[in-house]
Nucleic acid binder design. Structure first.
Lengths: 163, 163
DNA sequence: TGAAATTAGTTTAAACATAAAATATTTATG
DNA sequence: CATAAATATTTTATGTTTAAACTAATTTCA
């Protein structure tokens, strides 16, 4: 642990080629991510008069047939607890989800899709997959798998919440 | 090459393996992007009592020695025009940037770093690179270059603004 | 020239996002 | 049991973000 280059150079001034390559990779991820999110948001707005955050919440609830607690939802989406409150509120007003009390724990709520929400999401998810595929038309199957493998290696060991 | 699954199935109902792979890739990008942004934001807040958007604006201005117009700034950061107004406003209040009128075009403004802003950013950029490198410590140089190459292929042909 | 179109930027309203504080409830512990 | 600690969620304050409306200045072109 006494090689100074194994960790961040606290002394400043010098940065390694590897750290520069990682920074370039991060900036490229950010660029593609912003661009893709922007285009998907626009489509979501025009086609469904809705938003990506609401779509993401519905996606999480679609996978969890019995619904999710608010806290499980915010953890699964990697957004803050208070944030989910507002998004779910809007989805309730739209009739897409319901909040039901939890047996034996009056602090907690379970959020689940309504029948309408479930049917709506099923339709939208297929269209959404098509949008993504179109936006990523420069990516073949091998690229996709390589990219996923690389990003999984980056991601591992930091599965913590940040709330 | 006559496999009907090479493009999005307009008929609905069925989606190809390729489109599913691209969707998985996109979701993985989104996951890493959110996680990384969350950790960088936290560090920016704790270490500098600042935010990522302000850092991003300063980064763009650091690269452009003569400053940038508001519109060039928003295009370069891929965020809306109105958004930049507020961020620059805060940076002006902090003494990091100035707004100067443009000769022969009284509509336009050029935003540039102050001397203090330039010095501050130079220091922060090194530390920031270290943070990214630490967060990406599962990524070697080859991974970084592969990832960049893949994402460049995705990105090409959609260099438009979305404002 | 002068009206129309375009361009640059700000403002506004609504949504999203965080962090921190507050509320209510449950669990743990002396 | 009483109270302290922990948990689940909402509320509040602040900041980021977009889209759309708006103001002002510039350019186009009939």
């Amino acid at each position: 642990m006494d090689d100074p280059n194994l960790s961040r150079p606290e002394t400043g001034e010098e940065t390694s080629d590897l750290s520069k390559a990682r920074l370039r990779a991060w900036l490229q991820i950010l660029r593609v991510s912003r661009q893709t999110e922007g285009e998907l948001r626009e489509k979501m707005r025009v086609e469904y008069d809705s938003t990506l955050p609401r779509f993401d919440v519905m996606a999480a609830l679609y996978r969890a047939k019995d619904g999710l607690r608010m806290s499980a939802l915010s953890k699964s989406l990697m957004v803050s607890n208070g944030n989910v409150t507002g998004i779910v509120e809007r989805l309730v007003n739209e009739g897409m989800v319901t909040r039901v009390a939890v047996e034996n724990d009056r602090r907690a709520l379970i959020v689940k899709l309504t029948d309408e929400g479930r049917a709506d999401f099923a339709r939208r998810a297929l269209v959404h997959e098509g949008w993504v595929s179109d936006l990523f038309d420069g990516m073949n199957a091998e690229d996709a798998n390589d990219l996923i493998a690389i990003l999984r290696r980056v991601q591992s060991r930091k599965g913590q919440t940040h709330d």
